[in-house]
Design a protein around this nucleic acid. Structure first.
Lengths: 209, 209, 209, 209
DNA sequence: GTATAAACGAGACGGTACGTCAGGTCTTTCT
DNA sequence: AGAAAGACCTGACGTACCGTCTCGTTTATAC
């Protein structure tokens, strides 16, 4: 899940690996997963669907989930980068709405099993942390820090907790099974941002007049 | 994962199932999972560890994850019921601290793979929703509703979003891989509750004076 | 396969075994065997077909083939006893034709698998020898001996070999798979007897000078 | 039990099947059967004894008895082909003595359970008919026909009945359980041939005036 | 007429083997 | 050297029966 796409152009001797084949394998993995569920995804199945020998896959990736991870990350960074706007709140809303839109489509059908499998597989968890969570979090933290220094965000709460407060509900809704549809609407994102930015306490009753 | 504990006392003919055996199986499943990882948990392994025949397991549960789910739920309801206190905020804090304590122990090593597997297995997801998420959420919603009617909680945000805002960060930290330890400290819970109850916006700068 | 039918009428206390049940089990075994093949005959299957608990069977017989053997022997002695006629040749023909008729019916569908299984199971082989082969052979030997002393049969060939020469072709046709039908016709028996008697007849008595 | 030995030399791509492995499996099946009885012969047992995976066996044969059949037939045709001598009687005696010698050795411990199992398993019966009984019978029939046209054998009895009369006693002794040893001695064969030839010899040619 | 004892049905239980699937490695031939 | 094909060992799957056991219930004889 890491050694393959960054091969030298073709310095080495012998027949070069076919990019066409590489992509066919990744597409086969994703489409098979979406059709029959990612549990039950197998190298043999992917090889058959991609019309490729098992060895050809093993030459590139050590297991199925590495294929899925590579395919997923290629899409994600393209579809939903962190956004920057005039105010912190606007930046946050823009980033989250973009992410919501991505997750309501194909990525949403992949991200859930992928994060699920990561709970069972420490190596996968590490890859996801290093290549996805940490980079995105750095970018988001920069936004928050800027908001604090501009006086838009409270400085008495650790920025990590602030990020969790914002994105937590998002993934909570994504991963905790409490209703059928589980899609993330525009309104839901707005409600969350309003709740977290403004606080859920009822101030009319006095405390912070 | 559903038919066995509610057997009639012994109205039916034939030799009754041994509760001792049932418990031995559940304990074997949990301990094997904790030792070697829940990926790779197998019926054969559980049977061997429990000193029991495979058929004895299949007579009760259709697959490994059903065993884990039953074992998990038995513990959870015992260890971390929803708490009620004088104020809404106190009730929330008490409930979350209890849950945090439970998750920092054995349950935490189980809940992550269990929720993970649920992302891969729709049937498991449904069981978890019906027997865990929905019941707990009902209890928590009652707390929030009471808070709204007592004027402690804003009424302009849907109660569901409020619950997500509170518990979301909790599960975000539990499931998203952004640091090594991933335990949930007392301080973290306090920070989250403060952030969400008070809002992360900096009010000194004006808006809600 | 031996302890049950010879139970004392009912001297002992306790509920007596039901003859109806005993017969139901034997019939179930035979009919299941004929329907689905005797390979694959199982105690569980017989119990189900007979509407009886497994324990009820095990109380009477130690395994399926004992049931079949008991059922078979009960029929055989009734249907095809050794016959005695005026001459040796007539006695032999009568006995063999009777046997052929029996084997072309239900018994033929049972005797083959039964003798087959006996090749695999020494205990069964012994039972068949003691309760079927030996008794019948004694009766047949008596016929041959009488023929010898009456001057109808050559005395320079061991009676055992003579019996084998007569009955051998019969069982050869029954057990060796060389055509489809494998039934034993009246004409076939006649041909065999004619072929073999030509040799065992005593020529000193004149017939074929 | 039929598709494997006739593989093309190695035109096809992919790793070729190992002949060494094939033989190891057949030998394991035979020796296990002889040691513990052919009832109770299992694929798992054979695999373990041969030091081979179950799948490797299933790739070649569909069940244990196919292995035994293949192993048996390989030996039989090598050890006891039909013999031809100057006279019909000499040909028959030579063939039967050769067969008797083979059956008194290892083959005898295999042929009984094999013919036994064939009584229980129609598919096996067909294979034995096609690959063993019919070919041998053709060869033997040719001998008989030649004897008839040379005037050594009576022409008023169907050749099939003649063959049964000769070989029947042989298999009768082999399969019917009437004494312990059940070996076939040189003298027994002679006695049978003498008994039967007395009848099938053509008296018109004079011998027994 | 009430013990008492065995038969009986039902079904749990520890086992063994089944035949299948996928994993990951290897050995071939072809490109 | 890459790729396709397929053999190979391994380990687990879920199922069928085995023969034994533990129940509650029924049906006889014996006190």
């Amino acid at each position: 899940m890491s050694d393959n796409p960054r091969r030298p152009k073709s310095t080495s001797p012998g027949r070069p690996r076919s990019d066409e084949t590489t992509n066919a394998i990744m597409q086969a993995a994703l489409s098979l997963g979406e059709e029959n569920g990612f549990a039950g995804l197998s190298i043999e199945g992917v090889a058959a669907r991609a019309g490729v020998a098992k060895t050809t896959i093993y030459r590139r990736w050590p297991n199925v989930w590495s294929i899925v991870t590579d395919a997923f990350l290629a899409d994600l960074t393209r579809l939903a980068p962190i956004q920057t706007r005039a105010t912190t709140r606007e930046s946050i809303i823009a980033s989250m709405q973009l992410l919501a839109r991505a997750y309501n489509g194909r990525l949403g059908r992949i991200i859930r099993p992928l994060l699920g499998q990561a709970q069972l597989d420490p190596a996968l968890k590490k890859v996801i942390r290093d290549r996805w969570v940490i980079p995105r979090r750095q970018a988001a933290l920069a936004i928050i820090q800027a908001g604090i220094s501009r006086g838009e965000i409270r400085s008495d709460i650790p920025p990590d907790a602030i990020l969790d407060a914002l994105y937590g509900p998002f993934y909570h809704r994504l991963l905790l099974p409490y209703d059928e549809g589980e899609s993330i609407s525009v309104g839901y994102v707005d409600a969350i941002v309003e709740a977290v930015f403004g606080g859920i306490a009822d101030f009319k009753n006095g405390r912070r007049t």
